[in-house]
Write a protein that binds this DNA or RNA. Sequence first.
DNA 1: TTGAAAGCGCTAACAG
DNA 2: CTGTTAGCGCTTTCAA
Lengths: 343, 343
Amino acid sequence: MPRSRPPAKADADHTVTLEQVAARAGVSTMTVSRVLRNRANVAEKTRDKVRAAAAALGYVPNLLAGALASARTPLVVVIVPSLGNIVFPEVLQGINAALEEGGLQAVMGITGYDQDKEERLVETMLSWRPAGWIVTGLEHTARTRQMLRGARSPVVEIMDTDGKAIDMAVGLSHRAAGRVVGEHFARRGLRRIGYVGGDLVRDLRAAKRLQGFEQGLAAHGLALAARSGAPAPSSLRLGRTALAAMLAEHPALEAVYFSNDDMAVGGLMHCLQAGIAVPGRLALAGFNGLEIGEVAPLRLTTVRSPRHEIGRVAALRLLARLDGREAQAVTDLGFAFVDGQTA
Amino acid sequence: MPRSRPPAKADADHTVTLEQVAARAGVSTMTVSRVLRNRANVAEKTRDKVRAAAAALGYVPNLLAGALASARTPLVVVIVPSLGNIVFPEVLQGINAALEEGGLQAVMGITGYDQDKEERLVETMLSWRPAGWIVTGLEHTARTRQMLRGARSPVVEIMDTDGKAIDMAVGLSHRAAGRVVGEHFARRGLRRIGYVGGDLVRDLRAAKRLQGFEQGLAAHGLALAARSGAPAPSSLRLGRTALAAMLAEHPALEAVYFSNDDMAVGGLMHCLQAGIAVPGRLALAGFNGLEIGEVAPLRLTTVRSPRHEIGRVAALRLLARLDGREAQAVTDLGFAFVDGQTA
DNA sequence: TTGAAAGCGCTAACAG
DNA sequence: CTGTTAGCGCTTTCAA
């Protein structure tokens, strides 16, 4: 004979089900379900009875059962490359706050700037049948792209707008952000210019900024005199050591563009300690507009990215689409050049 | 007549189910289930047939259905107070990496250092029937505690060991960490000492560090000469402005202890810019051992907390318990005093 | 080594 | 406004 599980009511596992609430309230499970999900068309008196019964029993809904029955999960998969600096946590805060208001839950994945890892994450996450996806960047493996399209739930690619989106994109043009700094350097009359970055093969947005930066220089007849890139994640320390190394080899450098603010502040710290006059002897600039650049003894010249806002808007676009509303395909939230004291 | 949904095979929604894989492979759904979950006792030939069928159809398992049927989710709820500085993202990276190896998924919640928000989060998350919980700190509302206990899945409280754990705890003694700095200041012969922090009512671990710090001073017959606390989250900027304000009011101060490294580095930046000699004229110390303190022109005196390790170990303890292994109730991962150049 | 039956806890659809 | 019926896609249990 097949198993006949004991009725839930007698379960050793004291989990309270809709059915028990229904029994106690003297109504059907459907009515309980309606009340608990605030559906219309239930008499006020019935509502009260049901709520009382649910409270008395300490009922906790089972989202798994609900999601399976309705074919709708309140889950949104969020995939970011790293939590190693403050940039993506800030984006996550924006995402999280907005999703929460819409009654959705973020499930997080971290790729380590590895597209194959991203592909594996997407494959795994597919099993949750998420309501939507927020992924970082516009570059993915072909299979990742295919899986995301096949999932037929909305996808927002964040941070970048230089490229083609799978579905929606919310970010800024990194090429343009880099170009602005290149032109600024050129207009300042800086000539011997270096670049200090991390791993450009992995961080494609940093690569786009550098590309834009070089275009900005080229527009004024300039070119990069030195360039360093370690196969390591960007960090304050790397910025510091890489700048020191570059200056040892190219002592005549007049300016350095860094892949981001972490790197740039690291470089600035080197200059402060080594007694290198900034910006007189060496001009510096970064990207992101982090707080550390603002409170440094010299305000860092940089480009501010709207990180929290990118997260918030990405989540809102997703919510809009889930509500059946139209949502803009590409949202360029722009950036602001920060004319600081280091360049 | 009740709805009669079209059979899944003809569904407009092309979702492939176990049943379709089974049909194609010429076996029962149970056999497919066994193969796909790598259960023993399936003939090698059958395995191959099933795998081929699954691949051909592009089968994607439905975790919701699986979890409902087996009463087991691979979800772990992780609740942290904030992603506003790099501390908790680092903890999350540690958690995430270890959970992933164990086949578990983190679902994140952010409390904003608000215990009522935490309570609401726990209540909501309960509906996922998570396999385990990682929550921050040892202080929670009575109802949060009750819900977590009632969930009957393992709970790890992270960061702190000064108090009583619900189930397991992984962290360090903040009281001891504060005390070490207090004694260091005293031994250095510093006498007029101030404290600059954020909101101690919300950040209870910062409050414990301050308590330990004052004990350390008291052991040498000293007491705090000044103390500032804004009802705001700690930040580089707050550290900078709060120190400036404190020095304006207490110009004779010889040393300042900050609630953490963000605050302390902010303070250090103020000194660098204002030309205040550190540590000669003013000694500074913080807490956490962040990279920014290490690359500053003066290495920050601080106490290093094992953030990534706390996350990793917390996840491992959870995994151990889910595997039915015993796991240590309280794990004190300790801290390291960093004898920097600012105190 | 494989399969059949039952059911996890909930919601959609329809009937009244 | 409320109830009935069927079934979401999977795994458990037991039998063969």
